[in-house]
Structures are given as C-alpha cells and as structure tokens.
Computed example of a mutant assay.
Amino acid sequence: MKDLSTRLIHHPYKPPEGFEAVAPGVHKASTVFFPNVQALRTYDWKDKSGYTYGLHGTPTTFTLEERIATIEGGKHCVLVPSGLSAVTLVDMAFLRSGDEVLIPDNAYGPGKSFAAVELAAWGITHRYFDAMDPDDLARQLSPATRLVWLEAPGSITLEFPDIPALVARVQQANQARAGQRPIVTVLDNTWGAGVAFNAFDLGVDISMQALTKYPSGGADVLMGSVVTRDESLHRQVLLTHMRLGLAVAANDAELVLRNLPTMALRYEAQDTAARELAQWMQAQPGVVKVLHPALPDSPGHATWKRDATAAACLFSAVFDPSIPQSRIDAFCDSLKLFRLGWSWAGPISLCAPYDMASIRTRAWPHTGGLVRFAVGLESVHDLRADLAQALGALQA
C-alpha cells in the first residue's frame, strides 16, 4: 500500500487489549466488521453474543442496557431515543387493530395523546381508569383489552396507586380468558427510577423509564428504556424496536453511563430537599394543598409507605381558588432559582403551572390553580427563600 489515502484507512496498527478504566469505552459505528463470511452469516445481536450493525448495538449501548436492567431488577433492556418513544414502542409492540389499551387518567399526557391520535387511527381503542380504584380498572377491562398502563405516582398530581392490587385485577382477567392473548401490564417507572421500589416485585410485566430524568441527571440527554424479565415479552419489544429502526447515539449513552454511579446519591439528596420544601409549603398562605407521596394527607400515602423507600424530587401545590391564574403565573415568573421548564431530576430546580381541567377526563377535586415543582441540587435554604419571596409577591 503505497498511496497515503489507502494507508490512512487500512493502517495495520491495533492497540493492545486489556485496557480498563473507570469510564466504559465509547464505540461509534454504523458498519461493523466481520472476521469472515461465516461470522457475517451467524453473528446474532439479539442475545448480545455478537455485533452486526451499529443500529443493533455496540459495546457501549449493550453495557448501558445491562446496567439499566440491573437497576430495575429486570433481565432485558432496550434503549430508545426518549421516554415518549419508550411509551410508543410498548404500544406498537403489543397492540393490533381491534385491541384496546387502558390508561390511568393521571398518566403522562403525551402517552395519552399518542393513544388518542395515532393508536385510534390504527383501529386501536383506549379508555381511562381511576388509578386509585382497582375495582374501576376491573370494570374497564374488556375482551379487547390487551395492554394496561400504570404510573407510580401519577403525573403532575402524584397520587400513589396500589400497583399490586391493580396488577391482581389484570391477572384475574387473564385467568378467566385462558388460551387468549394475555393482557400485559406496563409501568412508567420514571419517578421510581429503580431506586424507590422494584417494579417487578410489585408484579408488573414491563417497566419503562425516561432515562432523560434520573439516570441522566444532567438535563442534557434524551433517552428511554424498556425493561422486562420475561424472554418472550422482551423478544416482542426487541423485534419491534429493530423494525422501527430505533437507536441511541454512543455519546448520549456515554453521558448516561457517566452519571449512573451518582444516581442513588442524587435521588436521595433531591428526595430529602423536596420533602422539606413540600412540608414547608403546606403552611404557606394561599396554598390549600400540597401533593407529595410522603405527606400523610397526600393521596396514596399509605401505599407509598408500604411499597416505596424514597420519593424523588417532585411536589405540586394547589392554590386557593380565590387566586386567579394570572397571579399564579406571575408567582412562577417571579421565582429566581426555580426556572420555568419541562422535565425534572436535573441539577436546576424547575416549576410549571398546569390547567388540570384540560388534562383530566374525570373530575379534579380542586378548583384552584396548580404548580408543579421539581427540586434540583441547589441549597434548600436558598430554594425556600426563593419560594418565600415569590409567595410574598403573590399575597401582595
């Protein structure tokens, strides 16, 4: 090889094997080389025994999948580009035209929208149930039901459901329809993150997460995961994942891998801070209700205390109905450390006002405005002072 261009591409040097460091290696690839034709024809990416194409996995993504599966207490994991894509992947893996999916009325809004628009266009129906009433779920189950979504706690309003009781209702229905396609239960476990509780110990079939939140922790990565223990369920998810061409970037996987070792520490710190601020917020003028699973009067507190050991970084405050939304918006605008923005579990505290009437199909028990807070890693003293000055302006 005399020409420089060829020598630069086909250089003979290979670094020695055996290199180890704290951070896993970052492998980027579309094309993957095979040593011979037999390997090209026989390597199988599905069981992680070989590499075939960058879309189907590299040492970097396989490592992250295995670590997420371990955190969740599962056996198999697939990675997707966002938490929402994890929701849609599960829907598309297990639902067919004529099927029905049941969704908690307090579930993640974009997942509900996917059911209402895309799934409906494909001939898949959906209904909502009260996650705090297992008997309501039992009443909603029909011969067409094939998938039941669960979320702990509920999005925005943070009610903590009795997951084992909800799963039991589905299992009873499956026993009654032996020989038919079973109903699959899937939990959005983004809030628990595999830290607050083990989803599979509570009985669910599938656990999905927005890795964007706690596993990332930096507010700079979008990613999701779908974890299973059952081989057949994993295979359904994996093959749908392949046919949809879903993949995550190696550098994004690198960032999540880098932040995983601190996740438990961050979770505990933000949990502690959120509890302190939620308790303080209860006593403030103009606030009629604070929603946080660890508060004794928050819906589902007893179930949270039974099933979980931690409570993440979120709490929501319901304001007095006499306070107009314009003043609540001004309260949010006057906060200095709590920034306006979506998502949570990053280093910076966030807040956002919500119109509950527009995102619930069932009656919401409060008429006052609601603001959700996500506590970051700032000083609790400084965050409390920020809330105090904004509440003072609200009262004035």
Rank of each mutant, 00 (worst) to 15 (best):
S232A: 15
S232Q: 15
H234I: 09
Q236H: 11
Q236V: 05
L238C: 13
T240D: 09
T240Y: 04
R243Q: 13
G245M: 09
G245V: 02
G245N: 08
G245K: 10
A247H: 08
A249P: 00
A249Q: 11
A249W: 03
L255Q: 13
N259C: 06
T262A: 15
L265Q: 15
L265H: 10
Y267A: 10
A269S: 13
D271L: 07
T272I: 04
A273G: 11
A273N: 07
A274C: 11
E276D: 08
Q279Y: 07
Q279E: 15
Q279L: 15
W280C: 01
P285N: 12
V288R: 11
K289Q: 12
L291K: 10
L291T: 00
P293V: 04
P293M: 08
L295F: 05
P296H: 08
S298P: 01
G300F: 04
T303A: 14
W304K: 09
R306M: 04
A308P: 00
A311G: 13
A312H: 09
C313D: 08
L314S: 04
L314I: 06
V318L: 07
F319R: 10
F319I: 06
P321L: 03
I323L: 14
P324V: 04
Q325D: 08
R327G: 00
D329A: 11
F331N: 01
C332M: 06
C332Q: 10
D333W: 03
S334W: 01
L335C: 14
L335I: 00
K336E: 13
G341Y: 07
S343R: 13
S343Q: 14
G346P: 00
G346S: 09
I348R: 15
I348Q: 14
S349Y: 00
L350T: 02
P353S: 14
S358Y: 01
I359A: 11
R360T: 01
